[in-house]
Simulated assay, not measured.
Amino acid sequence: MLNRVAAKRTDTSEDLVALIRRLAQHSADAEIAMILAKQGRRTATGLSFTATRVAGIRERAHIPAGPHHQATRDDGVSIHEAARQLGVCTQTVRRWLREGLLPAQQTTPHAPWRITLTEDVGRRFTPAVPDDYVRLAEAAARTGLARQTILNQVRRGDRDAIQVTQGQRRGLRVQLHPDEQGLLNDEASGSQ
Score class of each variant (00 low, 15 high):
73 R>W: 07
42 R>S: 09
70 Q>S: 07
74 D>E: 14
147 R>K: 15
15 D>V: 11
55 A>L: 05
149 T>Q: 14
190 G>Y: 06
177 H>M: 15
30 A>C: 08
133 Y>W: 07
129 V>A: 11
52 T>A: 12
91 Q>M: 14
173 R>C: 10
83 A>Q: 03
38 K>A: 11
155 R>E: 15
22 R>A: 12
15 D>G: 08
176 L>K: 01
49 F>S: 00
115 I>D: 00
85 Q>F: 03
189 S>V: 14
15 D>T: 15
105 Q>S: 13
143 T>I: 07
102 L>N: 00
185 N>F: 09
188 A>I: 05
183 L>M: 10
26 H>M: 04
111 A>S: 14
12 T>I: 14
56 G>M: 04
185 N>A: 15
142 R>N: 06
30 A>Q: 10
58 R>Y: 06
62 H>K: 11
56 G>T: 06
154 V>W: 04
159 R>H: 10
39 Q>W: 05
23 L>R: 02
156 R>A: 14
6 A>Y: 11
53 R>T: 11
35 I>R: 00
153 Q>L: 06
76 G>F: 00
69 H>K: 11
177 H>P: 04
22 R>C: 09
63 I>R: 03
43 T>A: 05
20 I>C: 02
28 A>I: 03
71 A>V: 05
12 T>F: 04
87 G>E: 09
146 A>M: 10
118 T>L: 03
98 R>N: 13
177 H>L: 15
135 R>I: 02
139 A>I: 03
42 R>L: 11
11 D>E: 14
144 G>K: 08
148 Q>P: 02
185 N>P: 00
83 A>E: 03
43 T>D: 04
7 A>S: 15
155 R>Y: 06
81 E>T: 12
98 R>P: 03
47 L>P: 01
122 G>R: 03
113 W>R: 02
32 I>Q: 01
91 Q>I: 08
169 R>M: 13
100 G>Y: 10
21 R>G: 05
122 G>N: 06
12 T>K: 03
